[in-house]
Design a protein around this nucleic acid. Structure first.
Length: 551
DNA sequence: AAAAAAT
């Protein structure tokens, strides 16, 4: 078994590690640290909770121990997706760097810029930042990137989810080519892999299992109640459980506020945390929660990932999260370090679809329980009904347009039988197989069919259309990129076979590309130039007519 | 549909 002293770290650093009470490196630390010390690039597939942070802070401290920073020219840069995570990394440098004299600066939004500028002027060895504030300060000329020799991109998958990748790409483009890059992500979806290829050179790839799937260490239950009963149900659950400390997740920031006030009114020891609160308040709340001064933290998904709070006894989901992955991240806040944790999810019948998605992801059903005094309902497997009048009216219209075969009596069948079989066997089986192959519970992100429905999939696909990835304008073989729609699949077009057959199979598609569009605007985006294959060469006259001027 | 991040 390796110990910290086998990894090549300096005596001062080993002392700091020992002072923190750690004796054994985690797998990712044992694997990564020697390579980081060698100066190699590292591609680490690991989640939070694996000891990932120390796997780069420790060797970086030793690397940075030699040399000195010049004003405004940081020697290393660590990018984090949220302010809280950035703060945590800064704390890690504080803890392990206490025997070194490294200057660090934490550049995050919501805090005074003057302070951060002052630190930059003094010269920083370690710069820890969220992308927005970093770019802001850079654009004001407060930072020169030319001395950055070590770059860390942490939680790349989350940066992708949050739309930070363009910022990250810009920042990386400002750095010297010759540098050491450490890149961490919980998943290696294709988009992430593409970034890694762009940023890293000959990286050492390290992949560690997630810290034990929360499914194994967290005792989960779900309660299905009416929306109006949720707060009551939650209070009863908290009272019937031995809640030492807990995070209660809501999907929306305003619901965080509402629930927080309600709990306070009922005499619970609670605080609220979400991204609309002042940063000072966020920091203060999180600190006192970590110190155990507050028992219940009502939070948005800011707190879902990566936050390192010891000894949470419970996680409550006041709402079913929109993305199944978030469920795993949320309940993963408890049951850490081998301790037992419990999670309770409050669902309304309309959230049934989301519950199914979660059960598919974790490969099993979440046991349903009753809360005494609250009527238990059944999960629905219908799509959430939207609004009142509007949705109702819209529906028949859609069905009238659909081919007869697909039409079905609006909502006559599907009472209980359907509701009680939430995940068809096939799907459940698939989930199990995937869990086995890909231990990370975030697998769904890598499944192409699934990504269509995820919000960031849109970003991904629009990226894919950029010239670099998908050189188009190969008129010779349009069918290779976009197969002709087969006639039998076409619905409802009045003259089903016509368009496909009227064109010779291999006719070159030379799209008509006027310099300006019908509104007189210059065309700029290439996406506009993609030929509309569905119409063949024929563009219906109404599309060519100038659009009526809008007021 | 929502949250995260720059003001």
């Amino acid at each position: 078994m390796t110990s910290f002293s086998d990894l090549g770290l300096s005596p001062e650093l080993l002392q700091a590690v020992a002072d923190s009470g750690y004796t054994q490196p985690t797998p990712i630390q044992a694997q990564a640290i020697p390579y980081v010390l060698m100066g190699r690039d590292v591609l680490g597939c690991a989640q939070t909770g694996t000891g990932k942070t120390a796997s780069f802070t420790l060797p970086m401290i030793d690397i940075l121990a030699q040399g000195r920073a010049r004003a405004r020219m940081p020697r290393s840069l660590i990018l984090e997706p949220t302010r809280e995570l950035a703060t945590q990394v800064a704390e890690s440098f504080d803890r392990y760097g206490k025997h070194h004299k490294l200057n660090q600066a934490l550049l995050i939004g919501g805090e005074s810029m003057a302070e951060q500028e002052k630190k930059l002027d003094r010269g920083v060895d370690v710069l820890i930042a969220t992308p927005g504030r970093l770019m802001d300060l850079f654009d004001r000329g407060k930072i020169l990137m030319t001395d950055v020799r070590t770059l860390v991109i942490d939680e790349a998958d989350r940066m992708l989810d949050m739309g930070f990748i363009p910022d990250v790409e810009r920042i990386v483009s400002l750095l010297p080519r010759i540098r050491q890059t450490l890149f961490f992500s919980a998943t290696m979806a294709t988009e992430i892999r593409r970034l890694a290829d762009a940023f890293l050179s000959n990286p050492k790839e390290i992949s560690v299992a997630p810290p034990a799937s929360p499914a194994a260490t967290v005792v989960q239950s779900i309660v299905v109640v009416d929306a109006a009963d949720k707060r009551d149900a939650l209070r009863r659950l908290i009272e019937s459980e031995e809640v030492r400390s807990a995070i209660i997740f809501c999907n929306r920031k305003r619901d965080v506020d509402i629930l927080f006030k309600s709990l306070q009114k009922h005499g619970f020891d609670a605080a609220a945390l979400h991204g609309d609160l002042a940063q000072s308040k966020r920091t203060e709340t999180l600190e006192s929660f970590k110190r155990g001064e507050i028992r219940l933290l009502v939070a948005s998904d800011v707190a879902a990932r990566g936050l390192d709070v010891d000894s949470l006894s419970h996680v409550f989901n006041f709402d079913v999260p929109h993305h199944a992955e978030d469920y795993v991240h949320r309940i993963g806040r408890t049951g850490r370090a081998g301790r037992e944790g419990r999670s309770f999810t409050l669902a309304t019948p309309e959230e049934g679809k989301n519950v199914q998605a979660i059960e598919r992801l974790i490969g099993g059903a979440i046991p349903k329980i009753d809360v005494e005094g609250i009527p238990t309902l059944e999960l629905s497997d219908e799509d959430r009904p939207r609004g009142r009048g509007r949705a109702r009216k819209a529906e028949p219209r859609r069905e009238a347009a659909a081919p007869a075969a697909e039409r079905r009596p609006a909502r006559t069948r599907r009472p209980k039988a359907a509701a009680e079989a939430p995940a068809p066997e096939v799907v459940a089986e698939a989930a199990v197989v995937e869990m086995a192959e890909q231990p990370a519970p975030v697998v769904a992100a890598e499944r192409p069919e699934r990504t269509e429905r995820r919000p960031d999939a849109r970003r991904e696909s629009s990226r894919r259309e950029r010239p670099a990835e998908a050189p188009r304008a190969e008129p010779a073989q349009p069918s290779a990129r976009r197969p002709e729609p087969r006639p039998e699949r076409r619905r409802d077009s009045g003259r089903p076979e016509a368009t496909a057959d009227m064109r010779p199979a291999r006719a070159p598609v030379v799209p008509f590309r006027p310099e300006r569009d019908n509104h007189g605007h210059r065309r700029e985006r290439e996406a506009d130039d993609v030929p509309v294959l569905a119409f063949g060469d024929h563009t219906p006259a109404f599309l060519l007519r100038a659009a009526p001027r809008r007021a």
